[in-house]
Design a protein around this nucleic acid. Structure first.
Length: 362
DNA sequence: AATACGGGGCG
DNA sequence: CGCCCAGTATT
């Protein structure tokens, strides 16, 4: 059945009006006080929405505050060095968000005179602004009745409307967008969209929803059936592949440590790390040979100081952390350099490698 | 339609 | 340890 055909079967006008009002009233009363809710500044809304992608509110708050004081305006962010932006993003994850955001902000400064577009098509063309973020900015910053369908909204609406479609499918997100177009308040689309998400975060939670406290319990089809924990339906994802590495803490005769910048694309793009030996391709005894080939350095391996397991969304790094010292040779590697302990902390490191930081201190 | 892309928190 | 989180870009 096509999305538009389903709506009338699920809710009549009276129910829609009551649902809207109950949701919005609850949101106005119970919403959390959050830094990006201080005003409707589109730039602030934009930055917050990018940071909040796949990331919890509590994690984002300190990053948002620091980011806004460091880059208060689109112009400030546009002029910044990419490494500074990555440093401000360090530890937040999904680093392409930071690079896409800066790319898009530069576009806004150059093509739109520094004003975030309120036109849906122009906004949606910006790097990193997908269907959710576009709707969030349009509704929250510009009071436009556009759907902003994220994981919360799909969970909440799948329960209220008893939608059993797999929410990991794109077609299901589009179904929910159509449903929201019918449900959304034209008077206060911002409160409606945020109310849906706030409800998902505070009441209609994944594991044990607080249905007894729910402002729209009367409208909830899943609660009526006693089946709220059965929804939403989501296909399970396959598990991550484990990849073994040797993480080398290589010191030269001046007590400096070897670090390198990762490639500009792919996993942890442009971030810095300690040299890693892929043990799938290199066996233990030939590590010094491999090191000489890659870096032009003769090194002597020392003690193993730790084992670090780092889980990504799609793979797992298993890293033995091993000390090493330079015996001879001259560094010959495009993206690597020796740095002293003070300078280390100017570079953006992924959390996986921050776990090895404690071992470089004397 | 699938896969790459981080990191943290919780049961 | 597996699931989920204010998703998007790429293939």
């Amino acid at each position: 059945m096509k999305p538009k055909e389903r709506v009338p079967f699920l809710l009549n006008h009276t129910n829609v009006n009551a649902f809207r009002d109950d949701l919005i009233s609850w949101f106005r009363k119970e919403q959390r006080i959050l830094p990006w809710r201080e005003n409707q500044d589109p730039y602030r809304v934009w930055v917050s929405e990018i940071m909040l992608q796949q990331t919890r509110v509590d994690t984002v708050i300190p990053y948002f505050n620091h980011f806004m004081s460091r880059f208060p305006s689109p112009e400030a962010l546009a002029e910044a060095d990419e490494q500074e932006v990555l440093k401000a993003w360090e530890g937040l994850g999904y680093y392409s968000r930071a690079r896409n955001l800066q790319n898009a902000v530069r576009e806004v400064v150059e093509s739109y005179d520094g004003v975030v577009p309120s036109d849906p098509d122009e906004l949606g063309k910006l790097k990193g602004v997908g269907p959710y973020t576009k709707g969030a900015i349009l509704s929250i910053a510009y009071d436009t009745p556009e759907p902003a369908v994220d994981g919360n909204v799909m969970r909440v609406l799948s329960r209220i409307l008893y939608v059993e479609d797999d929410i990991s499918k794109q077609s299901t997100r589009k179904l929910f967008e159509e449903l929201v177009r019918h449900l959304i308040s034209k008077e206060d689309p911002s409160a409606f969209n945020q109310g849906l998400m706030e409800l998902g975060a505070l009441i209609c939670t994944p594991k044990t929803p607080s249905c007894m406290l729910c402002p729209v319990q009367d409208h909830c089809s899943a609660f009526e059936k006693g089946a709220e924990t059965e929804l939403p339906i989501k296909a399970s994802k396959k598990k991550q592949k484990k990849i073994p590495y040797l993480l080398l803490l290589i010191e030269n005769d001046q007590g400096e440590v070897l670090i390198e910048q990762r490639p500009g694309e792919g996993l942890l793009a442009s971030l810095w790390q300690y040299p890693m030996v892929p043990l799938e391709d290199v066996d233990q005894e030939s590590v010094p040979v491999w090191m000489y080939g890659e870096y032009g350095l003769k090194v002597e391996l020392g003690e193993k100081v730790d084992h670090v397991r780092h889980v990504f969304s799609h793979l797992i790094w298993e890293m033995d952390v091993v000390r090493a010292v330079v015996k001879s040779g001259r560094l010959d590697h495009e993206r690597a350099r020796f740095v002293d302990r003070e300078a280390m902390f100017d570079y953006p490191f992924p959390v996986s490698h921050q776990k090895a930081h404690p071992y470089i201190s004397p």
